[in-house]
Nucleic acid binder design. Structure first.
Lengths: 154, 154
DNA sequence: AGTGAAACGACCGTAGA
DNA sequence: TCTACGGTCGTTTCACT
């Protein structure tokens, strides 16, 4: 987490390559090469660099619902202690899949994934017992409307 | 968005396959087969099914900061109209990469990506002018601490 | 940083248990 | 749903620009 900012060695060709891989992470380098006007080897080198430097990673993303995780929620958290210390206690929890320090009426936002309401209840209680946490507010997910991975390449 | 829920045809072997692809979305079917004890063709068929049914997708995920998008924020939104109608206006905005209907003191949460503070300001104003939106609250991202894609396979 | 060529390995369709 | 196998295509390495 927390990558080096402002690495500006990502040119338009690399962006085009990223765009291809956002559509299909397994598209062949040869096919990408045809699309962006580069040889297969050149594409492979660029992809290597992009992944090594952390600009991009190619991963499987899953649908919680279809894997039996029927409850998701965002927790808004207020803190009365070092935010990063609290954050590290939160990120250590398996069921937390996303956590960010924010400026605003919450100090932290954490997205959690669980199987049912009971698990969610237990989890929220667990959050409230974390040292440094003043309060939590729960936003239960009713319907995911958008999850895009393809910005930044337009 | 909004997949069919509770599809329980994802057995342990498929979960093991998913786990492999969460580590590296381009790992070869042969290598995965070795790891999970299946032939290359069987792995291929299962991956095909998993992606066709939307349980899983293999995509490139990028780091906003390294692509020159220095400002991210979560917007908490209250609505005085059909939530889904408002949601569809919001998801139509390019800079929105994530949007979910919630139960709680916000009706919607939307994550936005932009290049700088000025763009963010414009974007927030744009949100406030969307028909049906009563209010918005902005949580500016200061530091991303966790972004996991590998739950549900443990 | 890029190309091109040859050896290798992965992928895909089909057939069969 | 799995394995087995052969043809095709993608990937890797290397020498070169």
């Amino acid at each position: 987490m927390e990558s080096a900012a402002g690495n500006h060695s990502v040119d338009d060709i690399s962006k085009a390559i990223i765009e291809q891989l956002q559509e299909d992470g397994r598209r062949s380098y040869a096919a990408i090469g045809k699309a962006v006007g580069l040889s297969e080897a050149a594409v492979r080198q660029r992809v290597q660099k992009l992944t090594d430097s952390g600009v991009m990673q190619i991963v499987a993303v899953t649908d919680p619902l279809q894997l039996g995780f029927a409850r998701q929620a965002m927790l808004g958290i207020k803190v009365h202690e070092d935010v990063l210390a609290v954050a590290s206690r939160i990120t250590a929890i398996d069921q937390v899949d996303y956590c960010v320090v924010t400026a605003g009426s919450f100090d932290l936002l954490a997205e959690v994934v669980c199987e049912n309401d009971q698990d969610l209840l237990l989890l929220v209680n667990r959050f409230r017992s974390i040292p440094g946490v003043s309060s939590t507010e729960t936003f239960m997910y009713l319907s995911l409307r958008k999850q895009a991975y393809n910005w930044g390449t337009r």
